[in-house]
Nucleic acid binder design. Structure first.
Length: 334
DNA sequence: AGACATATCT
DNA sequence: AAGATATGTC
């Protein structure tokens, strides 16, 4: 590491912005110039904040804070408070958050890790195509659970990733916006799920306030072969909502529900409504959706998926696949 | 004026 | 390339 980075440690003991004057609003370029001059010439030992090394432990703490805060509250300041690490600053958290959101952070010991096999294509190189896939804030899907612990790193921010947008909540980038479509199911007379998914809290509110809406997928009749989220090979499916699935339908991993052949795609939520004897194959990540069972999909209680799942490893597919079988019927009511 | 996201720099 | 810093917006 460059020694310069270690220059200026947090001698002052301030938690926030050690040895560095807090910014107070916009400065004129002249002020900035003067400040630079002072920093370099007059105050020579005030140059650069200590370089924080985000070790696994520190990152774990960071993630713990993320999870603790939950979607909609993953802001640097709050993360900082929850982490309660002496010397750590909000700026540093922001920086780390940025890296994580863009999926460009790697634990120090993993920096030279080589990705093998399936996902290698996007795992190295300057910037991942689907760099936006993580750290959005998950939308709030009432009573929908997501087992983050089963997700690999990279998707660990997911719940925030998807609020990932808000988990990272205030993101405004196009990618994030696109990445967090707001599924809307329009009430119809048909047997779809009225009301659909309604997002609450900052993330959804944010998107809504920006006039952005995801595709309206209400009243869609599923047709085998159609994929919901496959605009390219780097699709991330925050939501997969299948409505009106046909009896005895089987979804394959490469199909609507999952991401076979798609690098590093994660399905954060897979929601099947109105299913009857549907067998779903998916990557392990999808297993996080086991909480879908018995979920109330919207506040109106429009759909209650009361079905059981048998989850077991499947030999028929590649080793990351699980077989999920919904044996019981789904009871959906409007 | 502070917090944030994002761009840029080291 | 990880992390710090600059910049612009709200």
């Amino acid at each position: 590491m460059n020694v310069d980075y270690i220059f200026n440690n947090n001698i002052a003991g301030d938690n926030e912005e050690p040895n560095r004057e807090k910014k107070r609003g916009r400065k004129s370029s002249k002020e900035i110039q003067e400040e630079i001059h002072q920093t370099i010439v007059i105050n020579q030992d005030v140059r650069r904040q200590t370089c924080t090394i985000w070790t696994d432990d520190l990152h774990a703490k960071f993630m713990e804070a993320i999870h603790q805060l939950g979607e909609g509250r993953c802001y640097p300041k709050e993360i900082l408070e929850v982490m309660n690490v002496p010397g750590l600053t909000r700026t540093q958290i922001s920086s780390h958050l940025q890296k994580c959101r863009s999926n460009s952070w790697r634990a120090p010991r993993k920096q030279k890790a080589i990705c093998h096999s399936l996902s290698q294509a996007s795992s190295s190189g300057t910037r991942q195509k689907n760099s936006f896939k993580n750290y959005g804030a998950m939308p709030r899907l009432p009573n929908l659970q997501c087992n983050l612990d089963q997700m690999e790193r990279g998707s660990e921010f997911s719940f925030s990733a998807p609020n990932i947008n808000n988990i990272f909540a205030r993101g405004k980038s196009l990618t994030q916006q696109l990445y967090h479509p707001q599924p809307q199911v329009q009430p119809q007379a048909q047997n779809n799920v009225g009301g659909g998914l309604q997002q609450h809290g900052p993330s959804f509110g944010l998107l809504g306030s920006q006039g952005l809406q995801g595709p309206t997928i209400g009243n869609i009749i599923y047709k085998p072969g159609i994929t919901f989220n496959n605009s390219d090979h780097y699709t991330q499916s925050d939501y997969n909502l299948n409505l009106n699935a046909a009896h005895d339908t089987t979804y394959s991993g490469s199909g609507i529900m999952s991401d076979t052949n798609i690098d590093e795609t994660i399905n954060y939520y897979n929601l099947n409504a109105n299913l009857d004897n549907v067998t779903t194959y998916s990557r392990s990540a999808m297993i996080s959706n086991t909480g879908v069972a018995n979920s109330t999909i919207n506040e109106l209680g429009a759909a209650n998926a009361n079905f059981q799942q048998n989850i077991g490893e499947s030999n028929e597919h590649d080793d990351e696949l699980f077989q999920v079988h919904f044996d019981d019927q789904v009871n959906a009511s409007l």
